[in-house]
């Protein structure tokens, strides 16, 4: 593996939450959306991030992009520490890392034509380009994502969800970034369109060597696209492994439960399959359990889990697991 382009060390994002109606001098409680996440990403690699709703996937992505205030930790991008950079210094790096969003239509300004939308990152980062150069580049990138370039003067509401997502991908791609963060890019699309978009992303990755951080809650999609997968629970990493390892041999009990819940497209097998159901709901991130955050729902929980937080350890062949018993 090549040297990592992105190194995240012990990243923490806490939000202040005030009780409704609280007096201004009452100290707000902190919601630990991301609580000590570390990972590395190499050039051309795809890292999948999975976890339940509210486990901090999107917040982690936004923290990497420096779009939410970071409590603690470091984000090192191509050797530069991004934490603590002001908006001007950060702007230089923004052309290198782009983002794709969940709701394809909402991520495009309804008052702009798709040509203007795709040209915006170019105009922001390369203000010296002439209008014809911008136009040529926009047409080229639209062609690459499978949108007819003669539609540049159309508006987002004239396109379908899948097409809008392609336009979003074109906007991310137009400045030749080294990293694209995809925040649930296929969750709002139906299955056949999902496949098109995922395959498009994989093809573009092969052509350009861009790294991807792919956030989703659909495990089968993540398995298809990812080289490595990170499992998050309540803002903590439960397991990081290559997608082959993770799906064949999940080590963490939470990963096991997640994978057992993936539906199999065969009614007979699906009926015979045993789903590992977890008790109770996700605990509140305002008041996470002590020690291991998963212990309240874990079938293996022992008294030690309440006291010592399990470190993320290599349990063989680079499979990192945070559990005392596996």
């Amino acid at each position: 593996m090549t040297a990592p382009i992105l190194t995240v060390t012990d990243l923490k994002v806490w939000f202040d939450v005030r009780k409704p109606g609280a007096m201004p001098w009452v100290k707000p409680r902190s919601l630990k959306a991301v609580d000590g996440v570390s990972f590395e990403l190499s050039a051309g690699e795809t890292l999948g991030i999975v976890g339940e709703s509210g486990c901090g996937k999107s917040t982690l992505a936004r923290a990497v992009m420096q779009m939410v205030p970071i409590e603690d930790g470091r984000v090192v991008w191509l050797g530069d520490d991004l934490t603590g950079l002001d908006t001007r210094q950060m702007r230089k790096h923004r052309s290198q890392m782009q983002m794709i969003f969940q709701d394809p239509l909402a991520s495009l300004n309804p008052r702009m034509t798709i040509g203007q939308i795709v040209a915006e990152p170019l105009k922001t980062h390369f203000p010296n380009l002439s209008a014809s150069e911008i136009k040529a580049k926009v047409r080229e990138v639209l062609d690459r994502v499978g949108i007819l370039p003669n539609l540049v003067n159309r508006y987002p509401h004239e396109f379908s969800g899948g097409q809008c997502q392609r336009i979003g991908i074109a906007r991310a791609l137009v400045v030749n970034p080294q990293l694209i963060i995809c925040d649930e890019p296929v969750s709002a699309l139906d299955v056949s369109i999902q496949a098109q978009v995922v395959n498009l992303l994989m093809k573009l990755q092969k052509d350009t060597g861009v790294s991807l951080i792919f956030i989703a809650h659909d495990l089968s999609v993540v398995k298809h696209i990812s080289d490595r997968v990170m499992v998050l629970y309540l803002g903590n990493v439960m397991e990081i492994a290559t997608s082959k390892q993770l799906y064949a041999n999940p080590k963490h009990p939470y990963t096991e439960a997640l994978i057992s819940a993936v539906p199999i497209p065969d009614p007979k097998l699906e009926k015979a399959k045993e789903v590992m159901l977890l008790d109770m709901d996700l605990p509140s991130p305002l008041d996470p359990p002590s020690g291991c955050v998963f212990r309240t729902r874990c079938p293996l929980a022992q008294p030690v889990c309440a006291e010592v937080k399990p470190p993320l350890e290599d349990k063989g062949e680079g499979q990192l697991v945070a559990c005392h018993f596996r």
Partner: peptide, 26 residues
Amino acid sequence: NKEFIEAAVATGVRTPTIIRRHIVPN
């Protein structure tokens, strides 16, 4: 809070430009 504003912020568009180009027309 719409995603296209977030997209503009992520791209690094300056705040006055965001207000002029994305907020006011809408």
